[in-house]
Amino acid sequence: MYDMAVLNAEKLECGFIAFCYLKLKQHTRENAMRIMEAVQNIPEIAECYNISGDYDFLLKIYTRDMKSYQKFLLRILGDLDCIGSLNSSFVLGEVKNTHLLPLPEQ
């Protein structure tokens, strides 16, 4: 079992949350690996999922504000030439945030 601390993103000045959907430029193993390796070293990216559907990856990103997110897109994600397109959605309000798992009843 891991110890975990829950931090207040607002107090740490990174309370702006965006979900960013990425589509690879080409569906190759190399491009997928480049994304998966890159996200490991980008602190703004809290979560990354390889997903099915219209996009290939879903990122949960924390920044200070919209201006910081714009800089993040241009300076960080913009440097990854394996990305074909992206689409961002912004969190207006958090309704539920938990790390609990739905354990089977015994």
Results as ranks from 00 to 15, higher is better:
Lys25Thr: 07
Met66Gln: 13
Lys67Leu: 14
Ala18Trp: 01
Gln106Ile: 06
Ile17Phe: 05
Leu74Ile: 07
Ile35Pro: 03
Tyr55Val: 03
Leu24Phe: 12
Gly15His: 09
Glu13Ala: 13
Ile35His: 06
Asn50Gly: 06
Ala32Asn: 07
Leu80Val: 12
Glu94Asn: 13
Asn97Val: 10
Met66Glu: 15
Arg34His: 04
Gly15Val: 10
Val95Gln: 13
Lys60Asn: 02
Asp65Met: 03
Leu58Glu: 08
Leu22Thr: 07
Met36Ala: 15
Ile51Leu: 05
Cys48Met: 14
Asn41Trp: 05
Asp81Glu: 15
Val6Met: 13
Val95Tyr: 15
Ser52Cys: 15
Ser52His: 15
Asp81Met: 04
Tyr55Cys: 02
Arg75Met: 14
Asp65Lys: 01
Leu100Tyr: 12
Lys71Arg: 04
Asp56Lys: 04
Glu105Arg: 03
Met33Cys: 04
Val95Ile: 15
Leu77Thr: 01
Gly93Gln: 13
Tyr21Cys: 06
Ile35Leu: 03
Ile51Ser: 12
Thr63Glu: 01
Met36Leu: 15
Ser89Met: 09
Thr63Gly: 04
Tyr2Asn: 15
Ile42Lys: 07
Lys96Pro: 00
Leu74Gln: 03
Met36Gly: 14
Asn8Thr: 06
Ile76Val: 11
Glu10Leu: 11
Leu7Thr: 14
Arg64His: 12
Asn8Gln: 05
Gly93Thr: 07
Ala38Gly: 03
Tyr69Glu: 02
Lys71Gln: 10
Asn31Glu: 02
Asp56Ala: 10
Leu103Pro: 00
Cys14Pro: 00
Glu94Pro: 05
Glu37Leu: 02
Cys20Ala: 00
Pro104Lys: 03
Lys96Arg: 03
Pro102Thr: 07
Phe72Ser: 09
Arg34Asp: 09
Leu103Lys: 06
Leu100Cys: 03
His27Asp: 06
Leu92Gly: 09
Pro104Ser: 04
